[in-house]
Design a protein around this nucleic acid. Sequence first.
DNA 1: ATAAGGGTTCCAGTCACAGGAAGGTCAAGG
DNA 2: CCTTGACCTTCCTGTGACTGGAACCCTTAT
Lengths: 128, 128
Amino acid sequence: MNIGEIAEQTGLPAKTIRYYEDIGLVTPQRGANGYRVFRETDAHKLTFLGRARALGFSIEQCRELLALWEDRSRASADVRAVALGHLDDIDKKISALAAMRDTLAELVQKCAGDDRPDCPILKGLEGP
Amino acid sequence: MNIGEIAEQTGLPAKTIRYYEDIGLVTPQRGANGYRVFRETDAHKLTFLGRARALGFSIEQCRELLALWEDRSRASADVRAVALGHLDDIDKKISALAAMRDTLAELVQKCAGDDRPDCPILKGLEGP
DNA sequence: ATAAGGGTTCCAGTCACAGGAAGGTCAAGG
DNA sequence: CCTTGACCTTCCTGTGACTGGAACCCTTAT
């Protein structure tokens, strides 16, 4: 399979797939014409990567997960540890965003939003 | 005031303040020795920027807010529009993260996390 | 022969800074 | 006067995970 075909199959942009090869996440073979040749295992890997990235795992975490995935003697505890770490990161991000949203929503609510210049949002940004 | 002093006062790293000058958010004067000289108005601006950034506004949104802040004939509706747009972005981000968390939490819960290789997390990443 | 539609490499840009090198300036102490 | 140390300056590079584009090669159909 050429890169376009695999891109369509996995839903990943061809650029991204080339990038993944660049950083060593996949290692497709090459045809006589220099084109990348993807096999089933490459397709599986890329699908795996696409899903892991969609769940917000970093590239390095994906690399780790991929290694565990390919290691048949892995301990599921190792996978779980990576996932739990990421889960914690996500929760922290959500908390931070929620705090921003609450503060901002409060300011927005106080603001009349008309053609007058008086604005509690700007005042809130000025100082405490 | 020198950059160190203003950095401490505003809580922004000196590097960040230099960067803000670079992109035209602040324009401190210069002393005879070439040092940046910050005045009260610069301090106010930087405090404003720090707060706006802490609420997650992008640099470009900050630039916009700063312009509105300095425009005494602004309409509060314009400020509110920027804030509402950002609020929407935040909500979208939170939703995306919450979806990730839910999916991931489900997988984590299914995983025994022991020394056996069988792992529902990896299986979930493989395919649907 | 040529045109369209693949593919290839490489370079630059994104966002909002952070790290660090190389060097100038200032105030205090010996 | 000289040194020390803390501060300041500019400039260059790197971050994460790609994306866009240029310049060029390969394949297939007309």
